[in-house]
C-alpha cells in the first residue's frame, strides 16, 4: 500500500498538468455516477419523508418482494432482456449495413442526403411515434385496416394479437435508432486505410469481397466496443418507447411489459420510493453481472477488444 502511494505521489508530481486536465472529468463521474449510488440504501429502507434518505428505518428485503411476490418479476425480466437483445442485434446490425453502404456511395450530394434522411427519425420523439403507431394499427380508422378493406380483406384487430408487438416495436426501434448508431460505424469505416482498398481493387477483388475482407474486419473493434457498451444497459428498457407505443393496453402487457414500465405503473399509483429503489437496484446488479460476464468472454477470446 505504502509503496503504491509513494508511486502515486511521484506520478502526480511528474504529470501535474495531465492530472489537472483529467480532474473535471473525474469530478463529474464522482458527483453524477458515484455519489448517487449512496441512494441505493433506499432499497433496503422504509422511506419516510420527514426522516430523509439516511434517517429512515431499515426494512430488509421487503421492498424487493413487490417485484417477485406475484410472479411478475421473472416475466418482466425475461421481456426486458428479450427486447434489448433483439433491439441490439437489429439496430446495430442495420447500422453497420447502413454505414457500409453509405461509405460505398461515391456521389457526395446523394450520400449526404441519404445519410440525413436515415438520421432524421432520431429527432422524432416517442410521443409522436406513439401517435404514428396508433394511427397505423387502430381497428376502426387505421392505415393498415383501411388498406386491407380497400383490397377487399377482413379487418385485423392488431391490438388484441400480442405476438406481433415484439415485431412492431423492433421495427420502430430500428427505424428510430439505426441512423444515429450508424454515425460511429461510418467514422470507423472512414478510418480504414484507403491503400488496402486500392490494393484489393488492383488484385481484382469485387465490391462484396472488399466489404467482406477489408471493411468488416476493419471495424471489428468498434463493433465489439459498441456491443459491450449496449450490453451494459440490457436490463434497462427504453421506458418511453414502450410507454408511448403500448400505453395502458393490458391485453399486450404479457408480451410488452418491461421492468421500467411495470415499476412506473405500480408506483405512480402508490408512490413508494423504497420499492422504486429496489427495482433499480435489481436492474443494476443484473446489468453488472451481465457486463462482467460478457467482458470476461471477450477477454478470453481476444484480450485487446475487452473494455477493461
Amino acid at each position: 500500500m505504502r509503496v503504491h502511494f509513494q508511486n502515486f505521489r511521484k506520478e502526480l508530481k511528474k504529470n501535474k498538468a495531465l492530472f489537472l486536465m483529467a480532474l473535471p472529468a473525474v469530478l463529474i463521474v464522482l458527483v453524477f455516477s458515484y455519489l448517487p449510488m449512496s441512494g441505493l440504501v433506499l432499497a433496503f429502507k422504509e422511506y419516510r419523508y420527514n426522516k430523509g434518505v439516511f434517517g429512515s428505518d431499515w426494512n430488509g428485503l421487503a421492498n424487493f418482494r413487490f417485484l417477485f411476490s406475484s410472479g411478475v418479476g421473472w416475466k418482466i425480466t425475461q421481456n426486458t432482456i428479450f427486447y434489448n437483445l433483439i433491439n441490439l442485434v437489429t439496430s446495430q446490425g442495420l447500422a453497420i449495413i447502413i454505414a457500409v453502404i453509405i461509405s460505398e456511395i461515391k456521389v457526395i450530394p446523394y450520400k449526404k442526403i441519404t445519410q440525413s434522411v436515415i438520421f432524421f427519425p432520431y429527432f422524432i420523439s416517442w410521443v409522436i411515434v406513439g401517435t404514428f403507431v396508433y394511427n397505423i394499427f387502430n381497428y376502426e380508422t387505421g392505415l393498415l385496416n383501411t388498406i386491407i378493406t380497400g383490397l377487399g380483406g377482413e379487418k385485423i384487430n392488431v391490438y388484441s394479437i400480442p405476438w406481433v408487438w415484439p415485431i412492431i416495436i423492433c421495427i420502430f426501434n430500428s427505424w428510430k435508432w439505426c441512423g444515429y448508431n450508424s454515425v460511429v460505424y461510418i467514422a470507423a469505416v472512414t478510418g480504414v486505410d484507403a491503400e488496402c482498398y486500392e490494393a484489393a481493387e488492383i488484385d481484382g477483388a469485387n465490391i462484396f469481397q472488399r466489404i467482406r475482407y477489408i471493411t468488416l474486419p476493419g471495424i471489428r473493434a468498434t463493433v465489439i466496443t459498441m456491443l459491450l457498451l449496449n450490453v451494459g444497459r440490457i436490463l434497462r428498457g427504453d421506458f418511453e418507447m414502450f410507454y408511448q407505443i403500448v400505453g395502458n393496453n393490458g391485453q399486450l402487457f404479457d408480451a410488452t411489459d418491461v421492468i421500467d414500465t411495470y415499476v412506473f405503473r405500480s408506483l405512480t399509483t402508490s408512490a413508494n420510493l423504497g420499492m422504486t429503489a429496489a427495482a433499480t437496484f435489481y436492474q443494476s446488479v443484473l446489468c453488472f453481472i451481465i457486463i462482467m460476464t460478457v467482458n470476461g468472454i471477450v477477454k478470453k477470446i481476444d484480450k485487446d477488444y475487452a473494455l477493461f
Binding site: 421487503a62 413487490f66 393490458g250 420499492m275
Partner: peptide, 28 residues
C-alpha cells in the same frame, strides 16, 4: 390505510389494470 399490505396492494392495482380494463371493455 394500505401501509401494512403495500406490496400486495401495488401488485393488485397493477393486475387490475392489466386484466380488468380489457375485460370491462369486452375485448376479452
Amino acid at each position: 390505510d394500505t401501509t401494512a399490505v403495500e406490496t400486495e396492494y401495488s401488485a393488485c392495482l397493477n393486475t387490475h389494470q392489466q386484466y380488468w380494463w380489457p375485460l370491462e371493455l369486452g375485448y376479452t
